[in-house]
Design a protein around this nucleic acid. Structure first.
Length: 417
RNA sequence: GUGGGUGUAGCUCAGCUGGUAGAGCACCGGGUUGUGGUCCCGGGGGCCGCGGGUUCAAGUCCCGUCACUCACCCCA
């Protein structure tokens, strides 16, 4: 027997309805804010991710699904969404119009990691990107839209962790300072390597014995240049005005190289070790990195799979699928033909209708009617056919009445209004 | 890549210090030859993850392997 590949899963009814509903809820606020839908390929030139996300990141160095196509091109399944969207913006010169360019996207991304609770090799996220301005008001808007999206998806128990990572003017100096500090700390070999490669990420280490040693480490927020500090101040002011609550997280670091200034993560405590349900930030250098013009941007990705887990942890009631309204129960060939047509007519009239197939017995068919959740069952047998009627049974009260076959559709429509 | 846990019916699981396979739920049928939910009765379904070993005898003990799962690293 075949099984779904490691780290993937099948979305099955009825749970799949919840997936659709959550995905729609997460982006609904952004759509109200003028974000337009963009869809980009699930695979891209490998070099796009290597350059955009960063060669030194775990994502690029060991987690990409990379393959050569028959033309000898190296392609990779996207490990995240922003690089592809930026590529499309540059390729189609979307920045030539009014700024910012506001876009939303939804779909799967792929990373070759060991799966665990809330972490999959094929995972789904919704993204928004606001490209072309470095206005801190836009940062706050983006953050508020995530906050609204989570609430629309039914969550209340999440927190926003916020910080600023500085920019090209102030981060290099801070990075050096941090590196000097970290070189004097007693760390394992892996971590020492990271000190040289990407020292900021050492700050994010979860291990208690590492964190103890970092208590006195210099923090980016204390070394921001005047422009970055001013930008961060306005972001927080706007956030407060928007009624969004946050917690300062000076040690928050993201795994992707392109982030600058505003950086954030939304976390939830009900998920297990993987607590992030969304994350993002500003990426003012990304466009230039990809060979485009100097084009600032800010955005986020929210994890649909993780939001579903968070909903379960919070006990949010499951989403109900479309309820069947009328269930048809035919007895015999002639009745089946007749009710098949009636069910078709009901559906065209906009009612959810279903029927018993395969010549099931009356008892079994009624059982199906009951399980379908239908308000009414329509029973049609020999006697009814002879009389030109069908039996319409109210499944809640058990009352049953004969209804003229010719007026069956309109009668049911009226009953269900 | 590293470590822990778990693999028995479609699902959730029981099966003691080894003695030849069980429950609940679900599904199908009957009780009610044209009426669902509750109830009662019946039925189909399992190489006990796979391979090897110990033993008169292995779901049970030992070794290996694979899968799933949780955690580290990292991230949504």
């Amino acid at each position: 027997m075949f099984t779904a590949p490691k780290g993937t899963y099948d979305l099955l009814p009825p749970h799949s309805e919840e997936f659709l509903a959550v995905r729609a809820a997460l982006v609904a606020p952004a759509r109200l804010a003028g974000y337009g839908y963009i869809e980009t390929p699930i695979f891209e030139d490998t070099a796009l991710f290597a350059r955009g996300v960063g060669e030194s990141t775990d994502v690029v160095s060991k987690e990409m699904y990379t393959f050569d196509d028959k033309g000898g091109r190296s392609l990779s399944l996207r490990p995240e969404g922003t690089a592809g969207v930026m590529r499309a913006v540059l390729e189609h010169h979307l920045y030539a119009g009014p700024l910012p360019v506001k876009l939303w996207a939804a779909g799967p991304s792929f990373r070759y990691e060991r799966p665990q609770a809330g972490r999959f090799r094929h995972f789904t996220q919704v993204d928004i990107e606001a490209i072309g301005l470095d206005d801190p008001t836009l940062d706050a808007e983006v953050l508020a839209l995530a906050d609204d999206g989570f609430r629309a998806a039914g969550l209340t128990g999440f927190r926003l962790l916020l910080t600023s990572l500085g920019d090209a003017a102030c981060r290099p100096a801070y990075r050096k300072l941090l590196q000097e500090y970290l070189r004097d700390v007693d760390l394992d070999e892996d971590t020492r390597r990271r000190v040289e490669l990407n020292p900021l990420r050492v700050l994010d280490d979860k291990r208690a014995q590492v964190q103890e040693q970092l208590a006195e480490a210099p923090l980016m927020v204390d070394h921001l240049c005047a422009d970055c500090a001013a930008h961060y101040d306005v972001v927080r002011e706007r956030l407060a005005g928007l009624g969004v609550r946050w917690a300062e997280a000076p040690r928050l670091v993201r795994g992707l190289d392109y982030y600058t200034r505003t950086t954030f993560e939304f976390v939830h405590d009900g998920l297990g070790a993987q607590s992030a349900i969304g994350g993002g930030g500003r990426y003012d250098g990304l466009s230039a990195l990809l060979g485009g013009p100097d084009l600032p941007g800010v955005g986020w990705a929210l994890g649909v799979d993780r939001v579903l887990l968070a909903r379960r942890a919070e006990g949010v009631p499951a989403v109900e699928s479309t309820r069947c309204a009328v269930f048809a129960v035919p007895l015999g060939e002639v009745a089946t033909a007749r009710l098949s047509a009636v069910v078709g007519a009901l559906r065209r009239a906009g009612l959810a209708a279903d029927m018993a197939y395969g010549g099931r017995g009356l008892k079994g068919a009624m059982k199906s009617a009951d399980r379908s959740g239908a308000a009414y069952a329509v029973v049609l047998g020999e006697r009814d056919l002879a009389a030109g009627v069908a039996q319409v049974k109210d499944l809640r009260t058990g009352e049953q009445q004969a209804v003229d076959l010719d007026s069956l559709v309109t009668t049911l429509q009226e009953k269900l209004q």
